[in-house]
Design a protein around this nucleic acid. Structure first.
Lengths: 189, 189
DNA sequence: GCTAGACTACACAGACCTGTGAAGGAGGGG
DNA sequence: CCCCTCCTTCACAGGTCTGTGTAGTCTAGC
């Protein structure tokens, strides 16, 4: 399911599906709509992806990969101290949420798929777990890094929700500065 | 739409709809299923509630009312200091999430309804805003109460998400103790 | 030239969706 | 007794859902 192996039609399908799933919700978008908007027949869609479920997984997997790339790039470019490194993660959050107010595609997907064993849910778990591991790494040398990382993850995910569900535009900046305070406190102890 | 004005059939419909909407997601549950499970015909459902959308709003409104009642009761029973009062709010979160791992019905509903002007979304906004106001009140006398309340709301909502989407059973206890630390820090300054 | 892959067109299946129309039964209050 | 509310039964409209079957076209590479 690497992007380089996607045929041109499949590429268009995935692009269109990604936009529609994210903007309108997964259950709210039918395969007919996706096919039509991609300028492709339903037959092609099923030939490329096999099922709507598999298309949903491809959608989440791609968003996952792109978000991880952004986080990795931000961490690579950040000064090598815990405060800066954690702030880099929250800078990605700020940049990412500036593009849309629909929140986190993984959180939204989890809300739509109650079954914890659904492949989409596995992806969601892994994404959040991966982010938490990056936070623990960013806190290298800080006392109680595991506990602090959990607090930071709570602030990070809370920001997504308070922004998209509660529609508070201050959510992300507030989370970012709260995170900074938490790390500074943990470092200075 | 007060519960005392609901006819017996309507009461059953709303109970069944609440359980199904919460467990399976709103779009995933059809009115046929709700009517059948309530031992009622679709005709009755539409006579009582008018539309599925209105039933969804009734579902959220009732959950909202019940959650608020629990928070108010917990705050009433808590010692009159910021740490205890804030902890009471998080105790309700702990008790509420112990009952199910499907997370927050309002967050989930927001994920399913992209239109911010949908009546369900208005309810969601009001619920989170109300909770934030209770937190500000609980922080009476604390310096920078508004900012601290936002941080606490982020931890509160983050706990819902990290529990339900990331399925981390430690999310709520971690949020509760982080909240306690935040308040203690703000008080002791 | 031949073949394989990508894609089109389009009908169809079978289920499910929200919502309505018509007709009537049961029971209580005026 | 009559009316009102609540609720029932059942058919139906009009649409959407995921997914498949059949048949055929175009293009690139061997």
């Amino acid at each position: 399911m690497r992007s380089t192996t996607l045929t041109p039609g499949a590429r268009r399908i995935l692009d269109v599906a990604s936009a529609l799933f994210y903007e309108r919700g997964i259950h709210a978008v039918g395969v007919d709509t996706i096919a039509a908007e991609s300028g492709v027949t339903k037959r092609t869609l099923y030939d490329r992806f096999g099922s709507k479920d598999a298309l949903v997984v491809a959608y989440l997997a791609e968003r996952d990969r792109r978000w991880r790339d952004r986080v990795v790039a931000a961490l690579d470019g950040a000064p090598d101290d815990p405060v800066s490194r954690v702030d880099a993660v929250f800078a990605v959050l700020a940049a990412g949420t500036a593009e849309s107010s629909r929140g986190c595609s993984f959180i939204n997907a989890a809300a739509e798929f109650p079954d914890p064993d659904h492949p989409a849910r596995t992806l969601v778990r892994e994404e959040k777990q991966w982010l938490r591991e990056r936070l623990v790494e960013a806190l290298a040398g800080v006392a109680d890094a595991e506990r602090v990382a959990t607090t930071l993850l709570l602030l990070h995910e809370g920001a997504f929700v308070v922004l998209s569900a509660a529609q508070d535009p201050d959510a992300v900046p507030a989370a970012r500065s709260a995170a900074r305070a938490v790390v500074q406190d943990a470092v200075g102890r």
